[in-house]
Design a protein around this nucleic acid. Structure first.
Lengths: 209, 209
DNA sequence: TGCAAGTCTGCACCGAGTATACACAGGGGT
DNA sequence: ACCCCTGTGTATACTCGGTGCAGACTTGCA
Protein backbone atom coordinates (compact mmCIF):
# COMPACT_ATOMS: atom_id res chain seq x y z
CA UNK A 1 0.00 0.00 0.00
CA UNK A 2 2.82 2.32 0.84
CA UNK A 3 4.35 1.73 -2.53
CA UNK A 4 1.11 2.35 -4.38
CA UNK A 5 0.45 5.52 -2.46
CA UNK A 6 4.03 6.46 -3.25
CA UNK A 7 3.42 5.97 -6.96
CA UNK A 8 0.38 8.19 -6.88
CA UNK A 9 2.14 10.85 -4.93
CA UNK A 10 5.04 10.74 -7.30
CA UNK A 11 2.77 11.06 -10.30
CA UNK A 12 1.04 14.04 -8.79
CA UNK A 13 4.39 15.55 -8.00
CA UNK A 14 5.48 15.08 -11.58
CA UNK A 15 2.34 16.74 -12.88
CA UNK A 16 2.90 19.59 -10.50
CA UNK A 17 6.46 20.03 -11.67
CA UNK A 18 5.42 19.91 -15.30
CA UNK A 19 2.85 22.62 -14.79
CA UNK A 20 5.22 24.89 -12.88
CA UNK A 21 8.08 24.43 -15.33
CA UNK A 22 5.86 25.06 -18.32
CA UNK A 23 4.49 28.17 -16.70
CA UNK A 24 7.85 29.62 -15.72
CA UNK A 25 9.28 28.95 -19.15
CA UNK A 26 6.40 30.80 -20.76
CA UNK A 27 6.58 33.66 -18.28
CA UNK A 28 10.30 34.12 -18.79
CA UNK A 29 9.74 34.05 -22.51
CA UNK A 30 6.80 36.42 -22.89
CA UNK A 31 6.32 38.09 -19.53
CA UNK A 32 4.00 37.18 -16.70
CA UNK A 33 1.16 39.44 -17.74
CA UNK A 34 1.28 38.37 -21.35
CA UNK A 35 0.65 34.71 -20.70
CA UNK A 36 -2.82 33.57 -19.71
CA UNK A 37 -3.50 30.72 -17.36
CA UNK A 38 -5.41 29.10 -20.17
CA UNK A 39 -2.28 29.05 -22.30
CA UNK A 40 -0.23 27.52 -19.48
CA UNK A 41 -2.83 24.81 -19.00
CA UNK A 42 -2.90 24.01 -22.70
CA UNK A 43 0.87 23.76 -22.96
CA UNK A 44 1.07 21.63 -19.83
CA UNK A 45 -1.73 19.44 -21.19
CA UNK A 46 -4.02 19.70 -18.21
CA UNK A 47 -7.35 21.39 -17.85
CA UNK A 48 -7.55 24.90 -16.47
CA UNK A 49 -9.50 23.49 -13.57
CA UNK A 50 -6.78 21.02 -12.72
CA UNK A 51 -4.12 23.69 -12.83
CA UNK A 52 -6.01 25.64 -10.19
CA UNK A 53 -6.27 22.49 -8.11
CA UNK A 54 -2.47 22.41 -7.91
CA UNK A 55 -1.80 26.14 -7.67
CA UNK A 56 -4.38 28.36 -6.03
CA UNK A 57 -3.34 31.46 -7.94
CA UNK A 58 -1.41 32.33 -11.05
CA UNK A 59 1.30 33.90 -8.92
CA UNK A 60 1.86 30.66 -7.06
CA UNK A 61 2.98 29.05 -10.29
CA UNK A 62 6.12 31.12 -9.84
CA UNK A 63 6.36 31.59 -6.11
CA UNK A 64 5.59 28.14 -4.76
CA UNK A 65 9.31 27.55 -4.29
CA UNK A 66 9.52 30.35 -1.78
CA UNK A 67 6.88 28.74 0.40
CA UNK A 68 9.44 26.08 1.30
CA UNK A 69 12.19 28.54 2.13
CA UNK A 70 10.10 30.96 4.11
CA UNK A 71 11.35 29.65 7.44
CA UNK A 72 14.95 29.16 6.39
CA UNK A 73 16.24 31.90 8.68
CA UNK A 74 14.37 30.47 11.64
CA UNK A 75 15.82 27.07 10.89
CA UNK A 76 19.32 28.51 10.89
CA UNK A 77 18.81 30.08 14.28
CA UNK A 78 17.45 26.89 15.76
CA UNK A 79 20.24 24.78 14.31
CA UNK A 80 23.04 27.05 15.50
CA UNK A 81 25.86 25.61 17.59
CA UNK A 82 25.53 25.75 21.35
CA UNK A 83 26.51 29.14 22.69
CA UNK A 84 26.57 30.97 19.35
CA UNK A 85 24.49 34.16 19.23
CA UNK A 86 21.64 33.94 16.71
CA UNK A 87 22.86 36.95 14.75
CA UNK A 88 26.28 35.37 14.36
CA UNK A 89 24.69 32.22 13.01
CA UNK A 90 22.67 34.23 10.49
CA UNK A 91 25.70 36.22 9.43
CA UNK A 92 27.69 33.05 8.94
CA UNK A 93 24.89 31.44 6.96
CA UNK A 94 24.64 34.46 4.67
CA UNK A 95 28.38 34.41 4.00
CA UNK A 96 28.19 30.73 3.19
CA UNK A 97 25.25 31.30 0.88
CA UNK A 98 27.15 34.06 -0.90
CA UNK A 99 30.16 31.81 -1.35
CA UNK A 100 27.89 29.16 -2.82
CA UNK A 101 26.18 31.69 -5.07
CA UNK A 102 22.83 30.79 -3.56
CA UNK A 103 20.15 32.32 -5.82
CA UNK A 104 18.43 33.82 -2.79
CA UNK A 105 21.41 36.09 -2.22
CA UNK A 106 20.98 37.68 -5.64
CA UNK A 107 24.55 36.67 -6.41
CA UNK A 108 23.95 33.90 -8.92
CA UNK A 109 24.69 35.02 -12.44
CA UNK A 110 23.35 32.09 -14.40
CA UNK A 111 21.07 33.58 -17.03
CA UNK A 112 18.02 31.67 -15.87
CA UNK A 113 18.50 32.75 -12.27
CA UNK A 114 18.92 36.39 -13.22
CA UNK A 115 15.88 36.22 -15.44
CA UNK A 116 13.85 34.51 -12.76
CA UNK A 117 14.85 37.07 -10.17
CA UNK A 118 14.04 39.86 -12.60
CA UNK A 119 10.70 38.32 -13.45
CA UNK A 120 9.63 38.61 -9.84
CA UNK A 121 10.94 42.08 -9.10
CA UNK A 122 9.59 43.52 -12.34
CA UNK A 123 6.12 42.01 -12.02
CA UNK A 124 4.08 43.89 -9.51
CA UNK A 125 1.64 41.16 -8.62
CA UNK A 126 4.49 38.72 -8.03
CA UNK A 127 6.42 41.12 -5.84
CA UNK A 128 3.28 41.84 -3.87
CA UNK A 129 2.49 38.22 -3.25
CA UNK A 130 6.09 37.46 -2.39
CA UNK A 131 5.83 39.78 0.59
CA UNK A 132 3.28 37.41 2.03
CA UNK A 133 5.94 34.75 2.30
CA UNK A 134 8.38 37.31 3.60
CA UNK A 135 5.95 38.21 6.36
CA UNK A 136 5.67 34.59 7.36
CA UNK A 137 9.44 34.32 7.37
CA UNK A 138 9.55 37.24 9.79
CA UNK A 139 7.04 35.58 12.09
CA UNK A 140 8.99 32.33 12.05
CA UNK A 141 12.27 34.08 12.76
CA UNK A 142 10.71 36.03 15.61
CA UNK A 143 9.59 32.72 17.12
CA UNK A 144 13.11 31.39 16.86
CA UNK A 145 14.54 34.49 18.51
CA UNK A 146 12.08 34.10 21.35
CA UNK A 147 13.06 30.49 21.80
CA UNK A 148 16.64 31.71 21.98
CA UNK A 149 15.67 33.86 24.92
CA UNK A 150 14.99 37.25 23.39
CA UNK A 151 12.32 39.55 24.74
CA UNK A 152 9.16 39.20 22.58
CA UNK A 153 9.23 42.79 21.41
CA UNK A 154 12.92 42.65 20.57
CA UNK A 155 12.36 39.37 18.78
CA UNK A 156 9.76 40.83 16.43
CA UNK A 157 11.66 44.00 15.73
CA UNK A 158 14.92 42.24 15.13
CA UNK A 159 13.33 39.56 12.95
CA UNK A 160 11.78 42.20 10.72
CA UNK A 161 15.09 43.99 10.44
CA UNK A 162 17.07 40.88 9.59
CA UNK A 163 14.71 39.68 6.91
CA UNK A 164 14.44 43.10 5.29
CA UNK A 165 18.19 43.62 5.36
CA UNK A 166 18.80 40.30 3.66
CA UNK A 167 16.27 41.23 1.00
CA UNK A 168 17.90 44.58 0.39
CA UNK A 169 21.33 42.96 0.09
CA UNK A 170 19.97 40.47 -2.42
CA UNK A 171 18.35 43.21 -4.47
CA UNK A 172 21.54 45.22 -4.55
CA UNK A 173 23.55 42.22 -5.68
CA UNK A 174 21.02 41.38 -8.34
CA UNK A 175 21.05 44.96 -9.61
CA UNK A 176 24.79 44.75 -10.15
CA UNK A 177 24.53 41.47 -12.02
CA UNK A 178 21.80 42.90 -14.22
CA UNK A 179 24.22 45.72 -14.95
CA UNK A 180 26.57 43.15 -16.42
CA UNK A 181 28.91 42.52 -13.51
CA UNK A 182 29.84 38.88 -12.99
CA UNK A 183 29.05 37.17 -9.72
CA UNK A 184 32.75 36.64 -9.12
CA UNK A 185 33.47 40.33 -9.64
CA UNK A 186 30.68 41.33 -7.34
CA UNK A 187 31.48 38.76 -4.68
CA UNK A 188 34.02 40.73 -2.57
CA UNK A 189 31.76 43.75 -2.35
CA UNK A 190 28.77 41.53 -1.57
CA UNK A 191 30.69 40.04 1.32
CA UNK A 192 31.67 43.48 2.55
CA UNK A 193 28.07 44.72 2.32
CA UNK A 194 26.79 41.67 4.19
CA UNK A 195 29.35 42.21 6.92
CA UNK A 196 28.45 45.86 7.17
CA UNK A 197 24.75 44.99 7.38
CA UNK A 198 25.29 42.59 10.27
CA UNK A 199 27.60 45.06 11.97
CA UNK A 200 24.77 47.57 11.83
CA UNK A 201 22.36 45.05 13.30
CA UNK A 202 24.74 44.24 16.13
CA UNK A 203 26.09 47.71 16.87
CA UNK A 204 23.37 49.99 15.58
CA UNK A 205 23.55 53.06 13.40
CA UNK A 206 24.92 54.95 16.40
CA UNK A 207 26.13 58.45 15.79
CA UNK A 208 26.14 57.97 12.06
CA UNK A 209 22.52 58.91 11.85
CA UNK B 1 -11.24 81.05 -16.00
CA UNK B 2 -9.33 80.30 -12.85
CA UNK B 3 -12.54 80.30 -10.89
CA UNK B 4 -14.23 77.94 -13.32
CA UNK B 5 -11.26 75.63 -13.32
CA UNK B 6 -11.30 75.86 -9.57
CA UNK B 7 -14.95 74.96 -9.42
CA UNK B 8 -14.42 72.07 -11.77
CA UNK B 9 -11.50 70.79 -9.78
CA UNK B 10 -13.50 71.05 -6.61
CA UNK B 11 -16.39 69.20 -8.16
CA UNK B 12 -14.10 66.42 -9.30
CA UNK B 13 -12.59 66.27 -5.86
CA UNK B 14 -16.03 65.98 -4.31
CA UNK B 15 -16.95 63.17 -6.68
CA UNK B 16 -13.73 61.44 -5.79
CA UNK B 17 -14.42 61.80 -2.09
CA UNK B 18 -17.96 60.55 -2.51
CA UNK B 19 -16.78 57.44 -4.30
CA UNK B 20 -14.09 56.66 -1.77
CA UNK B 21 -16.34 57.26 1.24
CA UNK B 22 -19.13 55.17 -0.21
CA UNK B 23 -16.69 52.38 -0.95
CA UNK B 24 -15.07 52.36 2.48
CA UNK B 25 -18.42 52.45 4.21
CA UNK B 26 -19.57 49.44 2.23
CA UNK B 27 -16.29 47.60 2.78
CA UNK B 28 -16.37 48.18 6.52
CA UNK B 29 -19.96 47.02 6.58
CA UNK B 30 -19.79 43.86 4.48
CA UNK B 31 -16.10 43.15 3.95
CA UNK B 32 -13.86 44.03 1.04
CA UNK B 33 -14.37 40.82 -0.89
CA UNK B 34 -18.12 40.82 -0.45
CA UNK B 35 -18.70 44.14 -2.16
CA UNK B 36 -18.36 44.38 -5.93
CA UNK B 37 -17.10 47.44 -7.72
CA UNK B 38 -20.41 47.54 -9.52
CA UNK B 39 -22.20 47.94 -6.22
CA UNK B 40 -19.89 50.74 -5.14
CA UNK B 41 -20.49 52.53 -8.42
CA UNK B 42 -24.24 52.21 -8.10
CA UNK B 43 -24.27 53.51 -4.54
CA UNK B 44 -21.99 56.40 -5.45
CA UNK B 45 -24.15 57.13 -8.49
CA UNK B 46 -21.43 57.00 -11.10
CA UNK B 47 -20.78 54.50 -13.83
CA UNK B 48 -18.35 51.66 -13.29
CA UNK B 49 -16.14 53.14 -15.97
CA UNK B 50 -16.01 56.50 -14.23
CA UNK B 51 -15.10 54.88 -10.96
CA UNK B 52 -12.10 53.28 -12.62
CA UNK B 53 -11.14 56.65 -14.05
CA UNK B 54 -10.74 57.95 -10.51
CA UNK B 55 -9.25 54.83 -8.91
CA UNK B 56 -7.17 52.49 -11.04
CA UNK B 57 -7.92 49.45 -8.90
CA UNK B 58 -10.45 48.39 -6.33
CA UNK B 59 -7.73 48.38 -3.68
CA UNK B 60 -6.96 52.02 -4.33
CA UNK B 61 -10.44 52.91 -3.16
CA UNK B 62 -9.14 52.12 0.29
CA UNK B 63 -5.43 52.81 0.03
CA UNK B 64 -5.31 56.09 -1.87
CA UNK B 65 -4.77 57.91 1.42
CA UNK B 66 -1.50 56.11 1.97
CA UNK B 67 -0.12 57.34 -1.31
CA UNK B 68 0.10 60.80 0.23
CA UNK B 69 1.84 59.63 3.39
CA UNK B 70 4.34 57.32 1.75
CA UNK B 71 7.15 59.85 2.04
CA UNK B 72 6.23 61.12 5.48
CA UNK B 73 9.35 59.67 7.10
CA UNK B 74 11.57 61.22 4.46
CA UNK B 75 9.89 64.56 5.01
CA UNK B 76 10.56 64.36 8.73
CA UNK B 77 14.24 63.73 8.16
CA UNK B 78 14.55 66.63 5.73
CA UNK B 79 12.67 69.01 8.02
CA UNK B 80 14.69 68.17 11.12
CA UNK B 81 16.42 70.96 13.03
CA UNK B 82 19.99 71.78 12.16
CA UNK B 83 22.37 69.39 13.83
CA UNK B 84 19.79 66.81 14.93
CA UNK B 85 20.57 63.25 13.90
CA UNK B 86 17.93 61.82 11.53
CA UNK B 87 17.11 58.92 13.83
CA UNK B 88 16.43 61.31 16.69
CA UNK B 89 14.06 63.29 14.51
CA UNK B 90 12.20 60.12 13.56
CA UNK B 91 12.02 58.98 17.15
CA UNK B 92 10.67 62.33 18.22
CA UNK B 93 8.11 62.35 15.43
CA UNK B 94 6.89 58.89 16.41
CA UNK B 95 6.49 59.92 20.04
CA UNK B 96 4.54 62.98 18.96
CA UNK B 97 2.34 60.88 16.69
CA UNK B 98 1.66 58.46 19.56
CA UNK B 99 0.70 61.33 21.85
CA UNK B 100 -1.67 62.59 19.19
CA UNK B 101 -3.09 59.13 18.65
CA UNK B 102 -2.16 59.32 14.99
CA UNK B 103 -4.00 56.45 13.24
CA UNK B 104 -0.77 55.40 11.54
CA UNK B 105 0.68 54.42 14.90
CA UNK B 106 -2.08 51.90 15.47
CA UNK B 107 -2.89 53.72 18.71
CA UNK B 108 -6.18 55.34 17.77
CA UNK B 109 -9.12 53.56 19.36
CA UNK B 110 -11.98 55.25 17.59
CA UNK B 111 -14.15 52.43 16.26
CA UNK B 112 -13.85 53.57 12.66
CA UNK B 113 -10.09 53.74 12.85
CA UNK B 114 -9.80 50.31 14.39
CA UNK B 115 -12.16 48.90 11.81
CA UNK B 116 -10.30 50.59 8.99
CA UNK B 117 -6.96 49.30 10.23
CA UNK B 118 -8.43 45.84 10.62
CA UNK B 119 -9.95 45.96 7.16
CA UNK B 120 -6.52 46.38 5.65
CA UNK B 121 -4.63 43.83 7.71
CA UNK B 122 -7.33 41.21 7.35
CA UNK B 123 -7.77 41.60 3.60
CA UNK B 124 -4.95 39.96 1.79
CA UNK B 125 -5.14 41.93 -1.42
CA UNK B 126 -5.14 45.19 0.51
CA UNK B 127 -2.17 44.22 2.65
CA UNK B 128 -0.31 43.14 -0.45
CA UNK B 129 -0.92 46.36 -2.29
CA UNK B 130 -0.06 48.38 0.78
CA UNK B 131 3.48 47.02 0.66
CA UNK B 132 3.90 48.82 -2.62
CA UNK B 133 3.53 52.13 -0.83
CA UNK B 134 5.75 50.89 1.96
CA UNK B 135 8.47 50.08 -0.54
CA UNK B 136 8.26 53.57 -1.96
CA UNK B 137 8.45 54.98 1.54
CA UNK B 138 11.67 53.04 2.08
CA UNK B 139 13.16 54.42 -1.11
CA UNK B 140 12.22 57.96 -0.18
CA UNK B 141 13.66 57.61 3.31
CA UNK B 142 16.87 56.16 1.91
CA UNK B 143 17.19 59.22 -0.30
CA UNK B 144 16.74 61.47 2.70
CA UNK B 145 19.38 59.58 4.67
CA UNK B 146 21.79 59.95 1.80
CA UNK B 147 21.14 63.66 1.63
CA UNK B 148 21.92 63.73 5.34
CA UNK B 149 25.33 62.33 4.55
CA UNK B 150 24.90 58.60 5.10
CA UNK B 151 26.74 56.06 3.03
CA UNK B 152 24.40 54.76 0.26
CA UNK B 153 24.43 51.19 1.53
CA UNK B 154 23.82 52.26 5.11
CA UNK B 155 21.04 54.55 3.93
CA UNK B 156 19.13 51.74 2.25
CA UNK B 157 19.60 49.27 5.05
CA UNK B 158 18.64 51.73 7.73
CA UNK B 159 15.64 53.03 5.82
CA UNK B 160 14.28 49.52 5.44
CA UNK B 161 14.78 48.87 9.13
CA UNK B 162 13.11 52.07 10.26
CA UNK B 163 10.03 51.64 8.10
CA UNK B 164 9.58 48.01 9.07
CA UNK B 165 10.05 48.75 12.74
CA UNK B 166 7.41 51.46 12.67
CA UNK B 167 5.04 49.08 10.95
CA UNK B 168 5.64 46.39 13.54
CA UNK B 169 5.05 48.85 16.37
CA UNK B 170 1.80 49.97 14.79
CA UNK B 171 0.64 46.40 14.32
CA UNK B 172 1.39 45.55 17.93
CA UNK B 173 -0.53 48.58 19.18
CA UNK B 174 -3.45 47.77 16.96
CA UNK B 175 -3.51 44.20 18.17
CA UNK B 176 -3.85 45.40 21.77
CA UNK B 177 -6.69 47.75 20.89
CA UNK B 178 -8.49 44.98 19.06
CA UNK B 179 -8.11 42.97 22.25
CA UNK B 180 -10.16 45.61 23.99
CA UNK B 181 -7.47 47.75 25.58
CA UNK B 182 -8.07 51.49 25.36
CA UNK B 183 -5.58 53.73 23.62
CA UNK B 184 -4.93 55.54 26.88
CA UNK B 185 -4.22 52.29 28.68
CA UNK B 186 -1.91 51.14 25.96
CA UNK B 187 -0.15 54.47 25.57
CA UNK B 188 2.62 54.10 28.18
CA UNK B 189 3.65 50.72 26.86
CA UNK B 190 3.49 52.01 23.28
CA UNK B 191 5.88 54.79 24.23
CA UNK B 192 8.19 52.33 25.93
CA UNK B 193 8.15 50.02 22.90
CA UNK B 194 8.87 52.90 20.53
CA UNK B 195 11.78 54.01 22.69
CA UNK B 196 13.12 50.49 22.83
CA UNK B 197 12.82 50.17 19.05
CA UNK B 198 14.81 53.31 18.41
CA UNK B 199 17.35 52.31 21.02
CA UNK B 200 17.84 49.11 19.09
CA UNK B 201 18.28 51.02 15.86
CA UNK B 202 20.84 53.32 17.44
CA UNK B 203 22.75 50.84 19.56
CA UNK B 204 22.09 47.53 17.84
CA UNK B 205 21.01 44.22 19.25
CA UNK B 206 24.52 43.78 20.60
CA UNK B 207 25.14 40.82 22.83
CA UNK B 208 21.45 40.20 23.29
CA UNK B 209 21.32 38.14 20.17
C1' DT C 1 -15.83 -8.21 -11.06
C1' DG C 2 -17.62 -4.56 -8.88
C1' DC C 3 -17.47 -0.85 -5.34
C1' DA C 4 -15.55 3.45 -3.36
C1' DA C 5 -12.55 7.35 -3.26
C1' DG C 6 -9.83 10.43 -5.40
C1' DT C 7 -8.73 12.88 -9.44
C1' DC C 8 -9.60 15.15 -13.87
C1' DT C 9 -12.51 17.58 -16.94
C1' DG C 10 -15.93 20.65 -19.34
C1' DC C 11 -19.10 24.12 -18.67
C1' DA C 12 -21.21 27.88 -16.83
C1' DC C 13 -20.62 31.60 -13.98
C1' DC C 14 -18.75 35.82 -11.23
C1' DG C 15 -15.95 39.88 -10.63
C1' DA C 16 -11.97 42.98 -11.92
C1' DG C 17 -10.27 45.71 -15.35
C1' DT C 18 -9.93 47.56 -20.41
C1' DA C 19 -11.01 49.10 -25.38
C1' DT C 20 -14.02 51.31 -28.12
C1' DA C 21 -17.20 54.24 -29.56
C1' DC C 22 -20.36 57.65 -28.27
C1' DA C 23 -22.95 61.67 -25.68
C1' DC C 24 -22.74 65.95 -23.77
C1' DA C 25 -21.06 70.28 -21.93
C1' DG C 26 -18.44 74.51 -22.08
C1' DG C 27 -15.04 77.53 -23.98
C1' DG C 28 -12.60 79.82 -27.78
C1' DG C 29 -11.87 81.43 -32.17
C1' DT C 30 -13.79 82.81 -36.67
C1' DA D 1 -24.23 82.51 -34.70
C1' DC D 2 -21.19 78.88 -36.07
C1' DC D 3 -17.99 75.10 -35.41
C1' DC D 4 -14.53 72.72 -33.27
C1' DC D 5 -12.03 71.09 -29.50
C1' DT D 6 -11.27 69.23 -25.15
C1' DG D 7 -12.55 67.11 -21.03
C1' DT D 8 -15.67 64.30 -18.65
C1' DG D 9 -19.06 60.66 -18.20
C1' DT D 10 -21.57 56.63 -20.25
C1' DA D 11 -23.04 51.95 -22.46
C1' DT D 12 -21.47 47.83 -24.42
C1' DA D 13 -18.80 44.19 -25.02
C1' DC D 14 -14.68 41.95 -24.25
C1' DT D 15 -10.39 39.46 -21.74
C1' DC D 16 -8.74 37.13 -17.92
C1' DG D 17 -8.37 35.16 -13.14
C1' DG D 18 -10.79 32.25 -10.19
C1' DT D 19 -14.90 29.14 -8.46
C1' DG D 20 -19.00 25.82 -8.28
C1' DC D 21 -20.91 21.97 -10.07
C1' DA D 22 -21.83 17.66 -11.98
C1' DG D 23 -20.24 14.02 -14.52
C1' DA D 24 -16.43 10.83 -16.24
C1' DC D 25 -12.31 8.34 -15.61
C1' DT D 26 -8.66 6.20 -13.01
C1' DT D 27 -6.97 3.57 -9.29
C1' DG D 28 -6.92 0.92 -5.17
C1' DC D 29 -9.33 -2.67 -2.79
C1' DA D 30 -12.56 -6.33 -1.51
Amino acid sequence: MNQQMGLRERKKERTRETIAETAIRLFLDKGFDRVSVTEVAERAEVSRRTLFAYFPTKEDLVLHRFADHESEAARIVRARPEGQPPLDALRQALLTALAERDPNTGLNDSPETIAFFGLITSTESLAARLTRYVARGIDALADAFREAGADPLDARLLAAQVIMVERELAEINHAHLVDGQSADDRYPEAVRAAGRAYDLLRDGAGSLA
